[in-house]
Design a protein around this nucleic acid. Structure first.
Length: 301
DNA sequence: TCCCAGGGCATCA
DNA sequence: TGATGCCATGGG
């Protein structure tokens, strides 16, 4: 029996190599595996986990279901997920023209042309990842995430490899802080993570709930009222998951370093210069941050 | 050893 | 509102 394959068109400014490179950059992400021209990961939830290859072609993506034959709903769900994951709906033309107006960063429009904003479509995962990543170096953060996913996530086996889906909020809401301390989470980080798991599980926090709020400011306010979610985490999750275009993770260590590297600020507390720098990028702030993060990575080989 | 890392919170003025 | 100290642990 032939595997199911579905083609998805990509936008005009789409650079498959940049996107694949970002996925496989310096870190070991446990949610997918990257190969030369494709990325393989699990979709769905416990009980019906699909393993799908996403082939990155210059002018289209090809989805191939490896372990099962999907129904129409499965196909629709994966297409939507992939579209959000690689931000396939945004026209980047205006973004690049604004970048070119600022000589300090003009190079990023050319060097990374066609790099899409790589998202985290699942809001719970985005918030959990934000909390995990607070104030620790990224390689350690990825280790913590792997321990969490391998202990509490669900997997399916394909060709002797495990493909995990992120732990459900219902599962993590039952976990105790000592369980996470054993994975080397700090006491507070464990407490924050369990708190948001309980909020999702109880329905007091959800994607729909945030989307029904009128604007970015009210979404940030809603999120930062939750213990463990500050300004940085709220903005990070909103930009990575809800594709909030104007999200800026204020105070982000990497962002500040990128701004220093580009001569935009000299001191990390120079809020006025940062605000001035972002001014022309209304509606593109999140993309700009994402591209500035890109400048921090080691050069491509 | 020291400083930093994709922060957040409590405390204090 | 803003500054300061603390938490917690790996990496350079």
């Amino acid at each position: 029996m032939e595997n199911t394959k579905i083609k998805i068109p990509v936008p005009e400014l789409f650079n498959k190599d940049e996107c694949l490179w970002f996925l496989s950059r310096d870190f070991d992400d446990c949610m997918y595996r990257v190969y030369k021209d494709r990325v393989r990961r699990a979709f769905g939830e416990a009980g019906s986990i699909m393993v799908v290859d996403v082939y990155m072609m210059p002018d289209e993506l090809v989805l191939e279901w490896l372990n099962m034959k999907p129904c129409d709903q499965d196909i629709e769900n994966v297409i939507r997920f992939v579209s959000e994951w690689f931000d396939l709906e945004t026209d980047l033309t205006q973004f690049y023209s604004i970048i070119l107006e600022d000589k300090r960063i003009a190079h990023i429009a050319k060097e990374y042309s066609g790099l899409r904003f790589i998202g985290i479509p699942d809001l719970f995962e985005a918030l959990a990842w934000g909390i995990i990543g607070q104030q620790i170096n990224l390689s350690f953060a990825y280790k913590l995430k792997r321990r969490l996913v391998e202990k509490y996530g669900t997997f399916t086996l394909y060709e002797d490899e495990k493909y995990y889906v992120f732990p459900a909020a219902e599962v993590l809401s039952e976990v105790k802080t000592d369980d996470l301390r054993a994975l080397q989470f700090s006491e507070k980080k464990a407490e924050y993570l369990i708190t948001i798991a309980k909020a999702f599980s109880a329905g007091t926090l959800s994607r729909e709930l945030l989307q029904n709020l009128p604007d970015l400011e009210s979404r940030i306010k809603y999120l930062t009222n939750i213990r463990g979610i500050g300004l940085w985490t709220a903005n990070y999750a909103l930009m990575k998951s809800l594709k909030e275009p104007s999200g800026i993770p204020h105070g982000d260590a990497g962002l500040l370093n990128a701004l220093i590297n580009h001569g935009i600020i000299e001191a990390k507390n120079d809020k006025a210069s940062i605000e001035e720098f972002f001014k022309p990028f209304t509606g593109w702030e999140a993309y700009l941050v994402f591209y500035l993060w890109r400048t921090l990575a080691r050069p491509k080989e």
